[in-house]
């Protein structure tokens, strides 16, 4: 009889705990970011296509499917490192076939040469070029990611990439200004 009681008691406890656990699993469900979104968040979002994919999201998907993490030149070593942390792999140096880490640039349209063909507007992945057919175009430099994609379609080659000028706000204290002396 005791055996039955104990079985019953344990069974009851198991049922109660099961219900609690089941409820907790539903009630406190942690919405984890899908891996692709997490990777996408680490990428610099220049949408430049230098990785060989048409934008950052497609590259994120490719990484999630096992592509190399070192194909993003705008992100540089920092992005590779972050991606390595996320994916649990060893960080690799940037792929040689993918150009060296460039300095930050934005597109600039030489406006008196622009013929208003709208080709660059179509090419811009982030809609950072303003203009209309037969009207001069210009780049919203704050929105430009420096992806380079508008340079090629221009029929009169009036777009150039200009490095972003440092301002006092973006200026970085330079540690090299600390004198370093060789002690024999």
């Amino acid at each position: 009889m005791l055996f039955v009681y104990s079985l019953f008691a344990i069974g009851l406890l198991a049922l109660i705990f099961g219900l609690i656990l089941g409820y907790a699993a539903v009630r406190f469900k942690v919405e984890a970011d899908p891996l692709v979104d997490q990777i996408d968040k680490l990428l610099p979002q220049t949408q430049c296509g230098q990785c060989g994919y048409p934008g950052c999201k497609p590259y994120a998907e490719a990484i999630a499917n096992g592509d190399d993490i070192n194909k993003c030149p705008p992100g540089g070593e920092a992005t590779v490192k972050n991606l390595a942390d996320l994916m649990g792999v060893d960080p690799k140096p940037l792929d040689d076939s993918h150009a060296q880490e460039p300095i930050k640039k934005v597109a600039f349209i030489r406006e008196d040469e622009c013929i208003g063909c709208t080709k660059c507007i179509v090419a811009c992945p982030v809609d950072a070029i303003l203009g209309a057919a037969k009207h001069m175009h210009t780049v919203i430099s704050d929105e430009c990611t420096g992806c380079d994609l508008c340079v090629d379609p221009c029929p009169v080659d009036c777009i150039e990439m200009r490095p972003v000028e440092a301002t006092a706000q973006s200026w970085r204290w330079d540690l090299n200004s600390i004198p370093v002396k060789q002690v024999s």
């Binding site: 996408d40 990428l43 610099p44 979002q45 220049t46 949408q47 934008g55 950052c56 999201k57 920092a78 992945p125 982030v126 809609d127 950072a128 929105e143 990611t145 973006s170 970085r172």
Partner: peptide
């Protein structure tokens, strides 16, 4: 600070890219 700035810009770029 510059990393944060870049992050903000990247988010903005992503938004614009997705909107496009």
């Amino acid at each position: 600070r510059s990393a944060q700035q870049e992050k903000i810009q990247a988010d903005k770029a992503r938004e614009r890219f997705e909107a496009r």
